[in-house]
């Protein structure tokens, strides 16, 4: 009877294997691409230029700059990664970041304005506020049965409104040397905020791969009906997912304030585009179940390397937005398996 039993080939088909590593390849390609333009420029100017060696782009100091720019976006993108793995979407990041940034700044100043004193309490407070917004988001989505993109988008506007209410349109400066050491103190060429981000990334990775919650995200994204039939409390997992995302959005807000020392209503601006783009470019599937935090890291780096590289090679500014858009599309084409086209709606 063995003649009837066919065993599927054990390894991944090569196409899938390529797709799995494509985002990293795209990143490597971009990192090697921009120095070529620098070389061309110097070559035309008749200067000596030894490809990577003389590249200003390909340098530790620029790596640190890219890392600083990427840090807040990475935090936000990590949060939304979990939601996208579940097959939902969270668009509340701009409002959540703004309101947590502003709440943090006000609380920080109210409690003495320095990390050396009681003001450190503002940090857990901001995380709590982020969690609360995410929780409300999840409850509205799950209990009122509103599609997640709509519920979260609406919550985002509520967040922006709250931030405006709290600040009255003003900026709040956080000038504490201790807090700003996130940016100003460097270990091995990279500022402290990059290490904080690394810790958060590892925490996210732990949640993704080593906790019931993380496993449940994948189960819901891969087959919600089956997850239900296996006895998972899908509603609770969803709400917890949005809450967790809120915590990461708040972390993003802390990093954003740490980077420029200002909290204001527009602190959250642009995070929606950059985080969703990064998640998708990184290869996490919008229909859920596939991808993870490392994909998101690569995606965030891709977007930030493009942004940085375009200025470094002196690309005319009117071309930059267009080129970013095109590169994003190319990156998505290369890094996602679009065979399941059902999501293209």
């Amino acid at each position: 009877m063995t003649e009837f039993t066919t065993v599927t080939a054990p390894r991944l088909p090569s196409r899938e294997r390529i797709v799995k590593w494509a985002p990293l390849l795209v990143l490597a390609f971009l990192i090697l691409l921009f120095p070529v333009f620098e070389w061309l420029e110097d070559f035309r100017g008749g200067e000596d230029h030894f490809y990577l060696l003389d590249s200003r782009f390909f340098s530790i100091r620029n790596a640190a700059r890219v890392a600083i720019a990427a840090t807040p976006a990475l935090m936000v993108a990590l949060g939304v990664t979990f939601i996208i793995i579940m097959g939902s979407i969270d668009l509340s990041m701009e409002g959540t970041v703004s309101v947590t940034a502003v709440v943090f700044a006000f609380a920080f100043l109210a409690m003495g304005g320095t990390l050396a004193g009681h003001a450190w309490l503002a940090i857990p407070l901001a995380l709590l506020v982020g969690a609360a917004i995410g929780f409300v988001n999840g409850v509205v989505h799950v209990k009122l049965r509103i599609p997640s993109f709509m519920a979260s988008l609406a919550m985002g506007f509520v967040g922006t409104g709250l931030a405006l209410l709290v600040t009255g349109g003003d900026r709040v400066r956080v000038e504490d040397e201790w807090f700003r050491s996130l940016l100003t103190v460097r270990w091995f060429s990279f500022p402290v905020m990059c290490y904080v981000a690394l810790l958060a990334l590892l925490a996210a990775w732990f949640i993704q791969s080593r906790t019931i919650l993380g496993r449940n995200f994948y189960a819901i994204g891969g087959g919600e009906d089956l997850a239900k039939a296996s006895g998972l409390n899908v509603e609770r997992v969803r709400i917890m997912g949005f809450t967790l995302a809120g915590v990461f959005f708040a972390l993003g807000a802390l990093m954003a304030v740490g980077r420029i020392g200002i909290a204001e209503t527009v602190t959250g601006k642009d995070f929606m585009f950059i985080s969703i783009t990064a998640v998708v470019v990184g290869g996490t599937a919008l229909w859920g179940g596939i991808g993870g935090v490392w994909n998101t890291l690569v995606g965030v780096l891709i977007v930030n390397v493009i942004n940085n590289g375009m200025v470094v090679i002196g690309l005319p500014s009117f071309l930059q937005d267009g080129v970013l858009g095109l590169l994003v599309i190319v990156a998505v084409v290369l890094s996602t398996n679009r065979k399941s086209i059902s999501f293209v709606k």
Binding site: R56, A256, I260, T267, D270, N308, V311, I313
Partner: peptide, 13 residues
């Protein structure tokens, strides 16, 4: 934030 990003890219260039 955009100014911050562009300035650091300028510094690189």
């Amino acid at each position: 934030q955009k100014a911050n990003r562009i300035m650091s890219s300028f510094i690189t260039r």
